[in-house]
Design a protein around this nucleic acid. Sequence first.
RNA 1: UUAGCAGGUCUCCCUAUCGCGAUGACUAUAAACGUUAGCGAGGAAAGUCCGGACACCAUAGUGCAACAUAGCGGGUAACACCCGUCGUCACGUCUCGGCGUGAUAGGACAAGUGCAGCAGAAAGAAUGUACAGGUAAUGCUGUAGUGAAAUCAGGUAAACUCUAUGUGGUGAAACGUCAUGUAAAUCGAUGUUUGAGGGUAGCACGCCCAAAUCGAAGGGUAGGCGGUUUGAGUCUUUGGGCAAUCAAAGAUCUAGAUAAAUGAUAGGGAUUCGUUGAACGAAUACAGAAUCCGGCUUAUGACCUGCUUUUUAA
Length: 125
Amino acid sequence: MPFNFPKKEKLKSKKLIEQLFVKGKSISSYPIKLIYLKVELPIDVPIQAGVTVPKKNFKSAVKRNRIKRLLRESYRLNKAVVFNNREGTFAFLFLYLGKEMPTAQQVGAQMKSVLEKFNKKISHE
RNA sequence: UUAGCAGGUCUCCCUAUCGCGAUGACUAUAAACGUUAGCGAGGAAAGUCCGGACACCAUAGUGCAACAUAGCGGGUAACACCCGUCGUCACGUCUCGGCGUGAUAGGACAAGUGCAGCAGAAAGAAUGUACAGGUAAUGCUGUAGUGAAAUCAGGUAAACUCUAUGUGGUGAAACGUCAUGUAAAUCGAUGUUUGAGGGUAGCACGCCCAAAUCGAAGGGUAGGCGGUUUGAGUCUUUGGGCAAUCAAAGAUCUAGAUAAAUGAUAGGGAUUCGUUGAACGAAUACAGAAUCCGGCUUAUGACCUGCUUUUUAA
């Protein structure tokens, strides 16, 4: 399992994102919230993921960029957790709900926990 | 030493590991995957306040209106920007002629309209004090008095106004093109009459629109590709010019994403701060390209040069 995050694993379709907000289920591990949906993906990959930081909480574009990069980085390092035991394909969207700048360690820990919660929930269904 | 002003330079650096984006090569009809190479945010990328390039639209034209600009000269693709200069104002200096620094929406009161603190009877369609003169009679005349200015006029246009010059609108989600594919809804051509009605930036004129026939393709799917980065480019030298800046020669190619790349971790170094040295710790501004340029404005760290002023110490 390589620790990479290529372009085809990024959630880009605006249609899918719309669907996520309408039908998606969510899990949160503050300050990270994961919205997910089991869907057919246009390309043959297990999961497509995107990140977003609301403009309301962070007015500065530099800070929003920083958090999005941290989210992407931590997903890249921890995605093996969900890639290994999944059935079907999913669309993910990570939301950052906090109002303070996090450190890389904090984001990493919460990312791990939210992905583990996702695994538990999926195995119960 | 501290503060201020003006100008200039830069925007922490290095190594390792793991990643991201587009491009070239391997590479072939194309795509995908992989390997590899070099490249990958700013001085303001920001605010969107001006000026352009570029694109499309007669719902784009014409007149009025509206809006913008405002000494003079120069620079420029253009400007409300920049440079020079004159006037005015303020401050400083002074040998009282000037000199230095800073500020400046600075055309016109010629036409019409409006406005004006204090003082004053009265600042223009309203009236009068004292003294003197004069008349049939009357502020009719003079002087005094108030004021910058008293039926003699003057001031004011970041007051209406006038003059000169300029301005159509919409903005890359513009616009072009490709693919899938059905109708009465789209476009083009031909074309008829009442020009009623509707549309058109405020108004008027003008213009456009509705039937039918023929031909071709649209909406929607925020689909793909182009536009999209070689340009009023950057650097160096020489020459012209007080300067802004211009010209010539040589060299050079320097981000191109689209739910949006340019990052993360570890180690080392640099600078600053924690009274000094070591050690240790903390901090390293403002801020993220989105069609592209020229300005303005705002945010903001460090260093260098020059000038000025105050305080402290010697």
